[in-house]
C-alpha cells in the first residue's frame, strides 16, 4: 500500500521537479538551438514513458496486491501484446534518433566560410591563436614548444609568422561569424567547454580535434575544462568574449603576432581586414 503511494509520488514528484525547479540549462549563445530542440523531444518521450511505467506499476500493486482468495492469471506469453509493445518502442526510439542524427550531420559539417581559431590546452591554462592577415594558421609541432614559443609554432613557416598568439588572455570571437575551433593539447587530455555554446570537444595531445559553431549572443562566457586533467582541473578557466564586429576589430588591433612575440622577422601589426570572402 505504502509502496503504491510512493510510486505515485515518485512519478508525479519527478514531473513537478522538472517543471518547477530553478535548475535548467543556461541560455544558449550559439547556433546549436537544434541540440536543445532534440533534447526537449527526448525529455518529452522519455518523461512520458517513465510516468506511464511507474504509474502502471502503482496501479498493479494496488489492484493485484495479495488478498486471500486472489489467484494470479497463468499466462506465459501474449505474442500480440509483446509485438505491439516492441513496435511502439522502436517507433519512439526512431523519433529520438532521427532528429538526433540529422543534427549531428550539421554538427560535423563545417561551413565553407568558417574562420579557423586554434585553442590550446595545457595543465592548467588556455591559449588561443588566430590566423593573421593571410587567413591561414601556420603549422606547429610539439618539439618547438619553449618559453618564447609556448604553442610550438614552426619558426620558419611563413604562415605562422603573422598568426596572433594569445597566451594568458581571453578568446575573442565575432558575433554571427561561423568559426571552426581547432583544438590541441600540449600535455594531457583537456576539453574545451563553454556551456552556453552547447558544443564541446576533447583536446588530445598528438592530434588536432575540432568542432564548429556560430556565436549568436554578445557577452563574456566562462571556459571550463570538461576532461579530467589532474589536480588543477577545476581551476583551468578562461573567458570567451563575443563582440560586434567593430569592437572585435578594435581588440584585434592591439594583439601581437607570433613574429613580434618571438622576436623573429615578420609582420609586426596584427590588425588586418580579412580578404573579401
Amino acid at each position: 500500500m505504502a509502496i503504491a503511494l510512493a510510486l505515485v509520488l515518485v512519478a508525479i514528484g519527478s514531473v513537478v521537479f522538472h517543471f518547477a525547479s530553478p535548475w535548467w540549462w543556461t541560455p544558449i549563445a550559439s547556433n546549436w538551438g537544434y541540440i536543445d530542440g532534440t533534447l526537449i523531444i527526448t525529455f518529452w518521450i522519455t518523461g512520458a514513458v517513465f510516468v506511464a511505467v511507474v504509474l502502471f506499476m502503482a496501479y498493479c500493486v494496488l489492484r493485484f496486491r495479495h488478498r486471500t482468495g486472489n489467484q494470479a492469471l497463468y499466462e506465459p506469453e501474449n505474442k500480440r501484446l509483446e509485438w505491439w509493445l516492441t513496435v511502439a518502442t522502436a517507433l519512439g526510439v526512431a523519433a529520438m534518433l532521427a532528429p538526433g542524427l540529422v543534427v549531428w550531420q550539421q554538427f560535423i559539417t563545417v561551413p565553407e566560410d568558417a574562420t579557423e581559431v586554434e585553442i590550446v590546452g595545457r595543465q592548467w591554462s588556455w591559449s588561443f591563436r588566430l590566423p593573421g592577415k593571410d587567413g591561414k594558421l601556420g603549422t606547429s609541432d610539439i618539439r618547438y614548444v619553449d618559453a618564447d614559443n609556448p604553442l610550438g609554432l614552426t619558426p620558419d613557416d611563413p604562415n605562422a609568422r603573422d598568426d596572433i598568439v594569445i597566451d594568458g588572455g581571453d578568446l575573442h570571437l565575432q558575433i554571427g561569424k561561423p568559426v571552426k575551433v581547432l583544438l590541441r593539447s600540449l600535455d594531457v587530455l583537456h576539453d574545451f567547454y563553454v556551456p552556453e555554446f552547447r558544443g564541446k570537444m576533447d583536446m588530445v595531445p598528438g592530434s588536432v580535434t575540432y568542432f564548429w559553431m556560430t556565436p549568436t549572443r554578445t557577452g563574456n562566457f566562462d571556459i571550463l575544462c570538461a576532461e579530467l586533467c589532474g589536480v588543477g582541473h577545476p581551476q583551468m578557466r578562461g573567458q570567451v568574449v563575443v563582440a560586434e564586429e567593430a569592437a572585435y576589430q578594435a581588440w584585434l588591433e592591439k594583439q601581437k603576432t607570433f613574429a613580434e612575440l618571438s622576436g623573429r622577422p615578420g609582420p609586426q601589426k596584427a590588425s588586418y581586414t580579412p580578404a573579401s570572402p
Binding site: I35, T46, F50, V54, V103, F107, D191, R198
Partner: peptide, 27 residues
Amino acid sequence: FIVTFVNGGLTGLFLGNVVVDVPLSDT
C-alpha cells in the same frame, strides 16, 4: 529496481543519442 532502472535507462537515451550527448557529456 524497476523505477530506478527505467529512470536511468531513459536518461541513457539522452547520452546515447550523439548530438544530445555533446552538451551533457562530462557533466
